[in-house]
Design a protein around this nucleic acid. Structure first.
Lengths: 212, 212
DNA sequence: AAGTGTGAAAAGTTTCACAGCG
DNA sequence: CGCTGTGAAACTTTTCACACTT
């Protein structure tokens, strides 16, 4: 179960990585407000976590704070940006421009956070062209060539569940390293590829348990 | 940190509840295929978990299996449906029909899984009416009355981040008990309300860390 | 023989509490 | 004195391994 090839950034809890993104957002807000120093207590409250957890999370990556004072906002923001690999604009492709896929294409929430959805692919590209989608939609046979020539590493997968595994296999073969999967299925990929599942119906169902 | 008012279904890991939904999907597929019995090994593989975990998860709710044989598919499906409170169609409202909100309204993925999006609310209902949305969109001032008269308990929240906390306060006051929140903010709610965050940009950012 | 149910061990994560620095 | 950095404790969740049932 080891990955001897990957010089693993080990020992860092996966959940801490998620929280890093949250901290980053809070820091951007602080920067916008001209705040230059922040204590773990303040930043933790903004992020919705406990101060000790914030300090521990940051400590995984080095020492950034000044005792008695707090953290310099800019240093922390830079550290997180570098850690998350967000120094440069990341190109992303979207595969499957059906209901949800084309919905996400019209929604430009990814762009706002520094990701560029550079192209979409669909078995039937014409069907979406009409409906107000401005990002180019190509036939899905062009996928491999595009990924290779544009060295895209991230893909958003919105194809119907029955095609999801087949499509992800093609994506992985083409060189995609991270997949944001909206299909309700556990995709099987090689260990060097990361899959993140977003299952909207499942989230609702989960809520359903907690209401009485 | 206790909630003495809530006769808590305690001791059951939250993550186990998520997995219950996954198991349920797999069971539905088995039912469709006419399979009547399934072993923990088989079902676990379909769900992408380890057999021992599946057995432990099911054991939180009772004993359903027959040793040497496996689990009866129908009994298990019924148990999960009841546990998740999915015996009846759940009405859901969507608040904030902007880019993402109207995208989700056109996407009918929730309906397929047994949730009915009965209405949407927006500060500017007309703007969405045009764009192929069939679910009725009302002015957001009608929210309280609608929730009360239709006894809706679940809401999907897609308003811009700066309004999210204010809107969720209104929702909670109106009687909403579960919120699927798409705004990148940690909402503060009373402990009897459950909030589930879906943060699409954060998921992409998280992937970004794992690609080299 | 096949496969569940489960206590106990292991692994992973969060919280505490306090020493130590500025 | 205030606030970070961190080892150790507490807690949660997963995995193991095997007794037990059909």
């Amino acid at each position: 179960m080891e990955s001897p090839d990957k010089p693993d950034k080990v020992d860092i809890p996966k959940k801490a990585i998620y929280r890093l993104s949250i901290y980053f957002r809070c820091l951007q807000k602080l920067i916008a407000n001209g705040v230059s120093t922040v204590s773990s207590t303040t930043l933790a409250r903004a992020a919705g976590v406990k101060p000790a957890q914030l300090r521990k999370d940051l400590a995984y990556f080095g020492q950034f704070g000044t005792r008695g004072l707090g953290y310099p906002v800019d240093v922390l923001a830079t550290m997180i940006r570098e850690t998350l690999g967000r120094e440069h604009l990341q190109p992303v492709i979207l595969v499957g421009a059906g209901n949800l896929g084309s919905a996400l294409l019209r929604y430009h929430g990814f762009e706002k956070e520094g990701f560029e959805v550079v192209a979409a692919f669909d078995a039937n590209p014409e069907s979406t062209r009409a409906r107000g989608v401005t990002i180019p939609v190509y036939p899905d046979s062009d996928l491999e060539t595009f990924v290779a020539t544009h060295s895209v590493k991230l893909a958003i997968l919105c194809v119907p569940v029955e095609f999801a595994q087949a499509v992800v296999n093609r994506l992985v073969a083409a060189g995609i390293q991270g997949v944001l999967n909206f299909s309700p299925i556990m995709l099987e990929v090689t260990p060097d590829v990361t899959v993140n599942n977003v299952d909207l119906a499942l989230e609702l169902e989960h809520l359903s348990y907690f209401i009485r």
